[in-house]
């Protein structure tokens, strides 16, 4: 069996792959943390407009350290910048953009994704202080809800499962998953493998996936730049 830790994609490579599916002019919300990396890999000649749910559309990159204006932050409470085209708005308008179907894509992280598109990404249900933020809103309304994630947990357990065991963020909401090994769509209650790393066999990929991977013709090779 292939040692997947040696062949799996880095987070940057997963983010790069997810960025290739964002069309020019798309309105995009990127979840806090890892999904934010997707913004760095917009293909040449395409311009997505990024939404951050605390109330900014089309913001610029992080300022130089020391140049932060703490009235100008993103949902992760990191400093961002204003650029020509930036718009500010209040929270009710911001979530109207989210739930009202105005976003083309939301890209989020995950603890687990189930084959019916259920997503668990807000709580492991193990006590502590509960905190949901905008996670439950972001999974509804965007035309596509994609997930970027490692294929398995740190201790090797599948993150793509038949049924989520962690508390749900949303039901039947995920449409595509970009993992460290594959690109997988959710269709009619099951996972459909679209691309896989050429160096992993179908059997080995299935072995680290918690639900049956269907194919629709042969999966394409998942090819990403070696260095990013």
């Amino acid at each position: 069996m292939t040692d997947i830790s040696e062949i799996k994609l880095t987070n940057a490579q997963i983010a790069w792959r997810a960025a290739q599916d964002i069309v020019d002019g798309a309105y995009v919300n990127l979840g806090i943390g890892f999904p934010e990396m997707v913004a760095q890999f917009q293909p040449e000649g395409r311009q997505a407009i990024f939404h951050t749910e605390n109330g900014v559309l089309d913001f610029g990159p992080a300022p130089e350290p020391g140049q932060e204006d703490w009235d100008c932050i993103n949902a992760g409470k990191k400093a961002i910048t204003v650029r020509p085209g930036t718009a500010f708005f209040h929270h009710a308008d911001s979530f109207a953009m989210v739930r009202g179907g105005h976003l083309d894509v939301a890209i989020l992280g995950a603890f687990q994704v189930a084959q019916n598109g259920d997503l668990a990404n807000w709580s492991t249900g193990r006590g502590g202080v509960p905190a949901v933020g905008g996670a439950m809103d972001l999974v509804h309304g965007a035309k596509r809800v994609a997930v970027v994630t490692d294929h398995v947990t740190r201790d090797g357990q599948p993150k793509l499962v038949e049924q989520c065991s962690f508390p749900l963020t949303g039901k039947g909401c995920v449409t595509r998953v970009y993992t460290s090994l594959a690109v997988i769509d959710v269709e009619d209650g099951h996972f459909v493998l679209r691309e896989k790393l050429p160096r992993i066999s179908m059997a080995d990929l299935q072995a680290v996936t918690g639900a049956t991977l269907h194919t629709d013709g042969g999966p394409a090779d998942l090819i990403v730049p070696e260095t990013l």
């Binding site: 911001s94 989210v98 933020g133």
Partner: peptide, 12 residues
């Protein structure tokens, strides 16, 4: 705990 967009809309 209230989801952020629900909190905003409840206030609105």
């Amino acid at each position: 705990i209230v989801p952020q967009g629900t909190l905003a809309e409840r206030i609105r």
